[in-house]
Write a protein that binds this DNA or RNA. Structure first.
Lengths: 153, 153
DNA sequence: AGTATGTAATTGCCTTGACAATCATTGTCT
DNA sequence: AGACAATGATTGTCAAGGCAATTACATACT
């Protein structure tokens, strides 16, 4: 019996969107598994928000949503959850009374210290078979594709 | 007023997962928009299923799910929708009475003829700024990363 | 000042997709 | 043959995220 049914009569097309899709899914599963394994009770999107704030300081919900290509309503609910878990706090915005500033609580900073170790590791795992020059080349090409897409109306 | 708020105080990290994420989202939006614009009432996942069957012949639901990294339950409901719209038909499987074979109806084949034109176009749009050698290099690198991830337990 | 237009966050509603349980059938093992 | 594990599809239930409408505030215009 075939142990790896992989391509059951479907030939691998390896088109660009398919490759990107497969890699994205692989990365996501990889990181979510590490989060679960380490007992951190947050998901992929939530961990990204924590990461952004940890690296760039407090942010407005709208900016977080835009940066993650996320809907604003989804961001509201995502922040609800992070706040319920005590990792994040909504503070009024100094200049704009409509807006908020999302800050990490001490628990949130502690969470980030735990996460950041294996997150970096998980991100390099996918590239472990590439030499430094190939990695650089890959990054360059991907950035160009991203910029091309950004400019596509 | 800033017309492009892009990075509002969040510096672009351009990490590998982030690049992949952005490119995936860009491609998905691009293709979904083309589907909408051309009046085809199916979404991204559904169009992939039609594409696979059109290119590889009738398939079992389970194989479609595995190939698209999709849950089997989700595939059942996805096929329900394609069947409701008349693009696809469930036939009993010749060898295995548990299984089904999913075939394109005439309407489904007609749909594919309409789609295939701009789908190919949409897929190349993202790569339009890359020379042939760079495209080849990019494909090579991405395949290697994908294979690395496949082998990561 | 006053009006209009734009933006920030929130909420309700809906679709998509994941997970677990279930049923039918197949293959394996003794 | 009979027991038993493995597989194919389906269903219920749930979480994540998109869209549209709403409310509150800010900015621009006259």
């Amino acid at each position: 019996m075939q142990k790896t049914p992989s391509l059951c009569g479907i030939r691998d097309d390896s088109s660009f969107p398919m490759l990107i899709r497969q890699i994205r899914d692989g990365l996501l599963h990889q990181i979510e598994r590490q989060l679960v394994d380490s007992g951190v009770a947050i998901n992929y999107s939530q961990h990204l928000v924590v990461k952004i704030i940890a690296k760039n300081g407090p942010q407005m919900p709208g900016d977080l949503a835009r940066y993650l290509d996320h809907n604003a309503g989804a961001m509201t609910r995502l922040l609800d959850q992070l706040e319920d878990k005590g990792y994040v706090e909504r503070k009024p915005h100094a200049q704009d009374r409509r807006a908020l500033t999302i800050e990490l609580t001490p628990a949130g900073k502690e969470l980030w210290r735990k996460m950041s170790q294996f997150i970096e590791h998980a991100q390099d795992l996918a590239l472990r078979d590439l030499k430094a020059t190939d990695r650089a080349k890959l990054f360059d090409l991907l950035k160009r594709v991203r910029d091309t897409l950004d400019e596509t109306p």
